[in-house]
């Protein structure tokens, strides 16, 4: 990725290249986040669904994987919600 185009000497950026930089950063973070989730789901659902690896993924294994993925995302979203609420409670307790 090339950030140098918007960075003339002195570090002043015009607003177009600033916007471009910011959206690139957001995109990179979203991508890394999705990759992390994919990696976790592959690991977790392999563990849950494939007890004896055969020559192919059979039907029941594929169904298990689909179900496991959906439940992992449910769990992720629930964790995110509970964690966010806890952070809010902690920060209001501090102030």
């Amino acid at each position: 990725m090339d950030f140098s185009s918007g960075l003339p000497a002195g570090g002043k950026m015009d607003s177009a290249s600033k916007e471009q930089l910011m959206s690139q950063v957001k995109q990179q973070i979203a991508l890394a986040n999705a990759q992390e989730l994919l990696q976790k789901m592959s690991e977790k659902c392999y563990k849950k669904c494939i007890s004896k690896p055969g020559t192919t993924l059979d039907n029941s294994e594929q169904k298990c994987i689909a179900m496991c993925m959906d439940r992992y995302m449910d769990t992720w979203n629930l964790v995110s919600r509970v964690y966010g609420q806890r952070l809010q409670r902690e920060s209001s307790r501090m102030s």
Partner: peptide, 26 residues
């Protein structure tokens, strides 16, 4: 991003402890 990394970590830990067989809903 740091908060999200923490959510990934917690989801991992809590999945291991709470989800036995994935069913059609939580």
């Amino acid at each position: 991003a740091e908060l999200q990394a923490q959510v990934h970590k917690l989801a991992d830990v809590c999945w291991e402890q709470c989800v036995d067989r994935p069913r059609d809903k939580l």
